[in-house]
């Protein structure tokens, strides 16, 4: 039960990013929206570690302040998918019969849709905002969790300890909570870890195309989107926010690999 060094490094990166998200207001050198029209599109320097953007705002400070919406939205997407998906999947697998068939047909139907394109259209319909992007991406991630949890619950249903609990008169809800959920959790954790990386990429991509976080608020994907017009003039503008997204997603994927190896 030991994590590889690289997985520990991934954990460290995630902890560091979370700390930045929590402590941003106190540790960032400038307010995130403080403009300085005397210092527009300046390269990284000792005054501005990651340079400044087209309004003279400090990119490093905006990175720190952008951590909160960027990470929280990925966490929220995973939370929506995991809680609803796990509950529906365990329920579906345990109850079986017509309820199970109905839920699974619905899941098959949702999985037959191009998820990200539908999430994009749904966000546009609800109105471009990070909350709506999170709702859309969260809903569309539910079927994956349902399928996973149901498969595990189906296998667990036949195991002796579940049969014994049922023979002793335990109800479905009790069995689901006491016997199924704890045994489904490790596989869900692996899946959620990969999903966190994907959710971070998807929500920042929606912000990048203007459907997520709206200006002037700082969010990593939106920052890259703001910098794309200046990409040839100011490399630092798009480079640093994108780098943080990549680091976050990479860490989540490395962690997912390590957790899967542990679970096997």
């Amino acid at each position: 039960m030991k994590l590889q060094p690289i997985a520990l490094g991934a954990c460290a990166v995630l902890v560091l990013l979370s700390l930045a998200a929590i402590a941003a207001p106190w540790i960032s050198p400038y307010p995130p929206d403080a403009m300085d029209l005397q210092a527009i599109l300046r390269p990284p320097s000792s005054a501005h570690w990651a340079g400044t953007d087209e309004l003279g705002r400090d990119i490093f400070s905006r990175l720190l302040h952008g951590a909160r919406p960027s990470l929280l939205s990925a966490v929220a997407i995973v939370a929506i998918g995991a809680t609803v998906g796990m509950a529906a999947g365990c329920f579906s697998g345990l109850v079986g019969g017509i309820v199970d068939s109905a839920i699974m047909r619905l899941v098959d139907m949702m999985l037959a849709l191009p998820g990200l394109v539908i999430a994009m259209a749904l966000t546009a319909a609800l109105g471009p905002s990070l909350v709506n992007a999170v709702i859309a991406l969260g809903i569309l991630s539910i079927p994956g969790y349902v399928r996973l949890a149901r498969g595990l619950a189906l296998a667990l249903r036949e195991r002796e300890f579940v049969q014994a609990a049922r023979a002793m008169g335990a109800g479905t809800i009790f069995i689901a909570r006491r016997h199924i959920a704890p045994n489904v959790a490790p596989a869900m954790l692996v899946y959620a870890s990969f999903h966190f990386g994907g959710a971070l990429l998807a929500s920042s991509a929606l912000s990048f195309i203007g459907l997520g976080m709206q200006p002037p608020h700082a969010e990593w994907g939106a920052m890259v989107g703001g910098g794309r017009e200046y990409v040839l003039a100011a490399w630092w503008y798009v480079t640093f926010p994108g780098l943080v997204v990549a680091l976050g997603a990479l860490s989540a994927n490395i962690l997912g690999d390590a957790l899967r190896d542990l679970a096997d």
Partner: peptide, 22 residues
């Protein structure tokens, strides 16, 4: 492989443009 699935597509595009064009 892990870099491929972790790097944001939109960012990779901008970086490649920066490198190969600029």
């Amino acid at each position: 492989a892990i870099a491929g699935i972790s790097i944001p597509t939109f960012w990779l595009g901008l970086l490649l443009l920066l490198l190969f064009y600029s």
